[in-house]
Design a protein around this nucleic acid. Structure first.
Lengths: 211, 211
DNA sequence: CCGTTAACCTAACAACGATAAGTTAGCGGC
DNA sequence: GCCGCTAACTTATCGTTGTTAGGTTAACGG
């Protein structure tokens, strides 16, 4: 594959345009190839119509680039889950809708999900900017909804953080295994999710363990 | 680091010795560096005291080597979990003991767990040798134990495969997230596991959803 | 039209996985 | 004792990767 047509140089002050084009091309390659390893700096540069070093004018290294790609995608993560719960009154149903949305989002964006939640963090998170952790806002909302369920008596009173963490690991378990082991003879996803919700809706109503 | 002292050539018919040394060195590097990317063919060869091409006398490529490393480790996987349930009478307690052992094993061998269950399969599994899938025997035993619980009336009757799959995703969710996101402010693991077991022991006793 | 500088490119490095082709040394046979 | 076969390696090299140093082009203010 010969290099794509050379990209026209941006006008003065418009250098940031390249950054956006790089992000777009990188995500497109990530989705098309389905392989993080195939998304090389050279392949991205080629897709954009630019030489490899130009990438480094906008991203310190490859990890930062991939992190940026995922950050863009996951800005929609929390919003997507919140939308999925719009108009639902029952706080317990809100929880289940959120869980279903989580799994769906992960399976719709498997490569980004893999980078964000199935590999070690690409960029070390400095203490103090923990709030910029992707998905942390979403987790906060989950804790809130769990607390709301407890207040409404929909689930047994207890530690909302502990319950939220457990719910997170539950939906992550399904999402990540489906992504990592697609060759396993999985039962129908809807059945699996229904069972998960069934178990939890019953299991969370009993007395919580002592904190 | 200069190359380690050169390894003495194996005697005739003892070429397989090198294979074992390579596997050992590869796993040691994997554990010490904690980074799959740092385990290069050259680093392994250096650790063994041999040149890189010698690796290929025993392994077709790097993926096959890493797969072999994990296979060795996971030959103990099912046995470890079975041992953890030895002497337990209550079939439900057997299930929980197995779950605890699963998480412990994963956290004790995080890099191998990551390769086996958190990345796409290193080597494509040919149809017909599905039974050699690492951990599949272990999964079979899980299904058996779930069925035993159903027979004993410890959990509601239903599809043992569905329930076993769900339990697998549950323990995998905890294990894999703990490995991938060690920086998250996790609650105490024992508390998390106790909550998981609490929820499931209650949730699995109600009527199962229709198959 | 000139000079500044933003926006790139050319050339190259070290490290990687992998391969082709050569070399060394253990050991049975005479 | 030493010859030859070949198992057990090595040397040299290829193409690709992430990344950097330093040079070049062209848009725009004056």
């Amino acid at each position: 594959m010969t290099p794509a047509t050379r990209r026209a140089r941006a006008r003065r002050g418009e250098g940031e345009l390249l950054r956006a084009e790089i992000l777009e091309a990188a995500e497109r390659l990530l989705i098309e190839t389905g392989d993080q390893g195939a998304v090389s700096i050279r392949a991205i540069a080629d897709a954009v119509g630019v030489t490899p070093p130009s990438i480094y004018l906008h991203f310190a290294d490859k990890n930062k680039l991939l992190a940026a790609v995922c950050e863009v995608r996951f800005q929609h993560f929390d919003a997507f889950m919140t939308e999925a719960t719009a108009g639902i009154e029952d706080p317990l149903e809100v929880l289940w809708a959120r869980g279903r949305a989580y799994v769906r989002f992960g399976l719709d964006h498997p490569e980004q999900y893999r980078i964000l939640f199935m590999t070690r963090p690409l960029t070390d998170v400095a203490p103090g900017e923990l709030d910029r952790l992707p998905g942390l806002a979403a987790f906060g909302h989950l804790v809130d909804e769990v607390a709301r369920c407890m207040d409404a008596g929909a689930i047994a009173a207890g530690d909302p953080f502990l319950v939220a963490t457990s719910l997170w690991t539950a939906v992550h378990g399904i999402t990540s295994l489906l992504i990592a082991r697609p060759d396993f003879p999985w039962p129908d996803l809807d059945r699996l999710m229904a069972h998960l919700i069934d178990v939890h809706s019953r299991g969370l109503q009993g007395p919580a363990p002592a904190p």
